[in-house]
Amino acid sequence: MYSIADLQTFVAAAKCAGITAAARQLGISSATASHRVTKLEGVLNVTLFHRNSRTFKLTDEGQMFLERVDVILDELQQAELEVGSGSAKLRGHLRMTLSPWILSRFLLPVLGPFRTEHPDLSIEFLAVDRFVPLVEEAQDCAIRVGQLADSALVAQKLCDNHRIICASPRLLDVVGVPETVDDLQDSPWVCLPWQTQFPVNDAKGRKRNVSVARSLAVSNSDMLTVGAVEGLGLAVKSRMAVREELEAGSLVEVLPGSLHGPEAPIWFVSPKESRAGRKTRAILQIARQAFRR
């Protein structure tokens, strides 16, 4: 029969993508961690990981087992707390994906007291602007910007937000202020790699797509802001992402109201299986605090 320690080791190995990293997180030897996972596979009579010298990845059965076991372990810890046999501190590992600007401008500034309160909880942020499928990439939760389409997730709105076109006043002094959406095509742009055109409203309020010539492409949203501030081109940004720059005057909005469908609310999302997870609930409260500031 397997033990709770075996299950904890399996979850750690899955989230750390390796036996050695899991052992380090749990404070045990790699041999012990490997033995626990092998024993668990033997009892279940199933292969939980594809592993060789180059690959360590959950099998389909392993992924299914992880989704159930992770929640069960979290609930077990909560039950221990409720009967008074444990401490209120969180333990283990939490993986979260979000845009770089949300991490740098909102979450990290409020994370200090939470880390002090829960020193045994390690947090891994995947800060990227691409869409990250939570289950496939073993993420516990995410903060996403824009309209949601994945009904398999539990979503809670953190705040409203809109996208705008913005530019540095220095750039506009040189190239001129765009007065119509047609002028946007002749302006220099700083873009993320996949941004080649934007939906706008024409003079009659009808939707059309404007293709732009990217004078500079950058890999993440924080660098997009820097490029715009430095006068390297116009950029489409979430208003909340450049709030400080707008207030300081280092960026100004261009053609207000010209973007079609600018609404881009900010959501906290998690897989349905992790609805009751204590770690997920705790980081949700931190996210709410961050966006109330």
Rank of each mutant, 00 (worst) to 15 (best):
234 L>F: 09
69 V>L: 03
165 I>S: 03
268 F>K: 05
116 T>G: 10
242 V>M: 03
232 L>Y: 02
42 G>D: 09
154 V>G: 02
248 A>N: 11
5 A>C: 00
138 A>Q: 08
194 W>D: 13
78 Q>L: 11
57 K>Q: 15
18 G>E: 04
134 L>N: 08
283 I>C: 02
115 R>A: 14
242 V>R: 06
168 S>T: 13
183 D>H: 15
37 V>W: 04
102 I>C: 07
201 N>E: 06
112 G>W: 02
283 I>H: 01
224 L>Y: 01
129 D>H: 09
3 S>D: 10
172 L>W: 01
182 D>C: 07
48 L>Q: 04
56 F>N: 02
241 A>H: 05
204 K>E: 14
283 I>P: 00
189 W>E: 07
220 N>G: 09
249 G>V: 11
89 K>R: 14
56 F>M: 03
41 E>S: 08
41 E>H: 03
127 A>S: 14
184 L>T: 12
38 T>V: 07
253 E>V: 15
36 R>E: 04
176 G>Y: 08
230 E>D: 14
116 T>L: 15
162 H>C: 03
98 L>R: 03
76 L>E: 10
221 S>Y: 10
98 L>C: 09
113 P>M: 10
32 T>D: 11
192 L>Q: 13
105 R>T: 05
79 A>I: 00
84 G>Q: 05
28 I>H: 03
117 E>M: 14
220 N>Y: 10
163 R>K: 14
120 D>K: 14
174 V>T: 09
80 E>P: 02
3 S>W: 01
84 G>E: 09
86 G>F: 00
30 S>R: 13
161 N>Y: 00
5 A>G: 04
124 E>I: 05
192 L>R: 13
224 L>Q: 09
218 V>I: 06
171 L>S: 11
255 L>M: 07
130 R>T: 15
242 V>D: 02
77 Q>V: 10
133 P>F: 12
75 E>W: 08
42 G>A: 04
30 S>I: 01
157 K>W: 04
236 V>T: 08
117 E>R: 15
219 S>W: 11
249 G>Y: 12
44 L>S: 01
281 R>T: 12
275 R>I: 14
137 E>Y: 10
42 G>H: 08
178 P>T: 13
230 E>A: 13
151 S>Q: 08
25 Q>K: 13
96 M>Q: 13
22 A>K: 05
